[in-house]
Amino acid sequence: MSVNYEGTALVLNCGSSSIKYQVVDTTREEPLTVGLVERVTNHSEGVQTIIASLEQPGSGVDIADITVVGHRVLHGGEEFSAPTIIDDAVERTIALLAPLGPLHIPANLAGINAARAAFPNLPHVAIFDTAFHSTLPEAAYTYAIDRRVAAEHGVRRYGFHGTSHSYVSRETAKQMGRSYDEINTIVLHLGNGASAAAVQRGRCVDTSMGLTPLEGLVMGTRSGDIDPAVVTHLARTAGMTVDEVDTLLNRQSGMLGMTGYSDMRDVNAAIATGSHEAKVAMDVYCRRIRGYVGQYYAQLGHLDAITFTAGVGENDHVVRAGALGGLEEMGIVLDPDRNAGRKKEATLISTDDSRIQVWVIPTNEEREIAVQSVAAAS
């Protein structure tokens, strides 16, 4: 997506009980304002609270300058693969996708409905978390199950964190002084939710999350990859219902399930005090990442860069070292001094003679949503 379009976007990320927002002038690097409305019981009231905040003297925003409203939407299914101007028909189609994101899509829709009522004369654009991955080849998105069942129920790999992978992969090329369409990059978005993406000359060709955000890397509370028979095993031997297993794998697993902590800072602190469980959990976490790096290297055939981003990726040098340690034969060599500490700006952490560059680049999903929304509305 070109960044040459100029405009000011109100970016909304609506959850069930909160609304994150930013106002972004695409000609400026920093947002005009950033905010969070919590304990939302009515999204219309939440949007009105945002408007009242923007109207305050000193907010740094003139509401009259806003040219578009960009909405983060979890899932586009097979229906939406690009930024989409929202009308009533689009809202209805998004609503039909709720089974693919039952915790998120209803909240996304509530925010869209409230914002369209509050800003009826502005274009509203849906930016789907899955859209960046719409370029996956058929072999990458197809699951090896009965094709009729898969087609009837939309069972395929969709991928998530698309706005982050899009922004970071493009920013990696910029930092390297290379053209986006000439380099291959692996992006590691490591936060409470975590995913990897293989980006080949500007197009995503593989990603670790699947039908839902549960598949792939180990996460704060999600298991990531697991034998699917675990579900039936627990149903038969533990008498767990489908919903109970779903809760277990999404909310009680990952680092939380293995250590009692979902925050990697707490895991590192436990390791420092000699916790065997925490050390094993960290090894599991890094081993999974390392496996995906190797897999995507093989799929890409040639690799120019690996980039860490998001909360853990940007701030935890132990994870970065653990994930890529021992890969020197593959041309990946970290510089311990460059890697040390938290990174608040784009930082090269590999050695000068590392054949594959390794970067830490803070993600900026809101800016990506703003840029794509302004472009779609232009």
Rank of each mutant, 00 (worst) to 15 (best):
I145E: 09
C204W: 08
T212R: 07
T207E: 06
N184C: 12
V205D: 12
A196T: 02
N192P: 11
T212M: 06
G220C: 14
I186L: 05
S166H: 15
A197D: 02
M209E: 04
S169C: 10
G224V: 00
Q200D: 11
E215C: 01
I186E: 00
M240H: 03
S179R: 15
I145S: 12
R156C: 00
S208I: 02
A238T: 00
D225P: 05
V187C: 10
T241M: 08
H165A: 01
D181E: 15
V231L: 15
K174N: 13
S169T: 08
N192F: 14
T185D: 10
V231Q: 09
A139N: 13
R201Y: 10
I186F: 13
G210I: 00
S169M: 05
G159M: 04
C204P: 07
R170D: 13
T172G: 03
R201W: 06
Y158W: 04
S166R: 13
A139K: 06
R156P: 05
M176N: 09
G177L: 10
T237P: 11
T241P: 13
G220L: 14
G216Y: 01
N184S: 11
G239F: 05
A194T: 02
A150Y: 01
G202L: 11
A140D: 12
D225C: 04
G191R: 02
Y180A: 15
G154P: 10
Q175L: 09
R178C: 11
G210T: 01
D146V: 06
A235T: 03
D146T: 10
R203W: 05
L214Q: 03
A173H: 05
H233T: 12
A194S: 06
G177Q: 11
D225Q: 03
E171N: 09
I183K: 08
T241C: 12
D181H: 14
T185R: 03
R178I: 05
E182Y: 08
A173M: 00
S179L: 11
G202P: 05
H161L: 01
R201K: 15
R222Y: 07
A139M: 07
C204M: 07
A150E: 05
A235I: 08
V149N: 11
T232F: 13
R157H: 08
L214H: 03
A150H: 04
V187D: 03
I183L: 13
L190G: 01
V218N: 04
A140T: 06
I186Y: 13
